[in-house]
Amino acid sequence: MWVEMNRRELLQLFGGVAGGLPAVAAILAGLDSNERQRVGEVLIRPERVDDASIAHIEDALNIALKQNDLYGPQAVLPMVTAQQAIARALLAQAPERLKPRLFTVHSQLAQLAGWMHFDLRAFDLANASYEAARESAHEAGNDELVALVLCNLSYLSTWRGSPRTGIDHAVAAQVWARSVDDGLLRSYAEVIAAFAYASSGRANASLAALDAADDALVDGIGTEASVAYFHGPGLSLSFRSDCMYRLGRAADAHQAAVSSLELIGEGYTRNRAMAYVDLAHAHIEGREIDEAAQVIGEAAVLAASCRSDRLSEIIAGARAELTPWADALCVRDLDDLMNDYGLSNSRM
């Protein structure tokens, strides 16, 4: 009701686009009456922005991060885009003392939006969001966030088939990550570099980066409030498995994939699905078709609850590797399962 009463002013905040109005309602709905009034006044008159109103945007960001891990980008991206628009609008009239904090939250929202666009295979939009995130991180003087965004830019470039550009971004990310006291972030920068090196066939550089990631991870365990909070032994092993597969070392890829699944928490749906695909690649290399079909099916079940076009494509690609055994019962059963969950497979 409040949103409708103040629709004109809110549309000005969002540049005339009504898509942000549900996000405003969602933010206000979680507040008590006093805080709702405070935040409402800030949205109508951005010059009133204060620490408390920025804190509410930060809280909404943290909720979006968790929702994205569980449900995927299609469910969460509109909310994040609206929150990003709010932060950008408030920056125009915020006092100087609050701008570093606002630039930080704007950068965090932009990089999260970039990751979601990446998951939806909207690669140009992902790149644009990451560049906006990098610019805001520099404006905030937030070296940790700069390093994280550069990691994401590297991963995106490598994924798009430009691993040399991915190496450029990864090397920059390593430099920024080494300048801060965050072992998890340093480890993440190293595995991203390893992925880019492996994708360009540079085995020695990739293996060295993976070992450096393990060393940094030891220092990073227990790190509080890391921007790479999602990183850990399980994800690091998943990257190792992927790199080993790309470098033609199937046995090492298999071992790392099995270990990663033991360590990746249930809340990280996509990471677990990716680890299952890593394991499938290793099984296929070893001509273990029943096992490969089973773990691709596990990934498909997870993907159904966390919609991601990129993840669906990865799973479909793993299924495509089973084409020589398309008539096997286990593969036909896998096709039926993927069809039930709305994922593409060879028969579709």
Rank of each mutant, 00 (worst) to 15 (best):
G20V: 14
I63G: 06
L102D: 07
A140P: 06
D32V: 08
E139A: 15
E47C: 14
L150M: 15
K66W: 04
Y71S: 05
A23Y: 02
L148T: 11
A140Q: 03
G16C: 10
L120W: 01
P100N: 09
N152F: 04
Y130W: 10
Q74R: 12
D143N: 10
Q74L: 12
V24R: 11
N34Y: 13
K66D: 09
R48T: 14
G16T: 15
G141K: 03
E131L: 13
D143R: 13
N62K: 14
D124G: 00
S33Q: 15
A60T: 07
Q83G: 10
A52R: 11
T81Q: 14
A52P: 03
A92D: 07
S53G: 10
W115R: 00
A110P: 06
Y71C: 03
V80I: 15
F103K: 06
G72M: 06
G20W: 13
P95T: 14
F118L: 04
Q74N: 09
A52V: 09
N127R: 01
D59Y: 07
Q67G: 07
I27T: 09
E135S: 07
E139N: 14
R36G: 09
A140K: 07
Q108F: 00
P95G: 08
H56K: 06
A82W: 01
E144T: 06
L145V: 08
R88D: 02
A18K: 09
Q84G: 11
F118N: 02
A110F: 07
E131P: 01
V105A: 12
I44N: 05
L77N: 01
F123L: 06
A92N: 14
D51F: 08
D51M: 09
F123P: 03
S136K: 04
L21R: 13
P73D: 04
N34A: 15
H106T: 12
D69E: 08
Y130S: 01
L98D: 07
A133N: 12
L125A: 03
Q108Y: 00
R36L: 04
R97F: 10
D119H: 02
S33C: 06
Q111T: 02
G141T: 10
L65N: 09
L90T: 07
A82P: 06
L125F: 02
I44S: 09
F118E: 05
Q67T: 08
L112A: 11
A29S: 15
A89S: 15
A26R: 13
V149N: 01
D124Q: 00
S107L: 07
A126P: 02
A128K: 11
L61I: 12
E135R: 02
A25V: 07
K99H: 01
D50R: 08
E139Y: 08
V80Y: 00
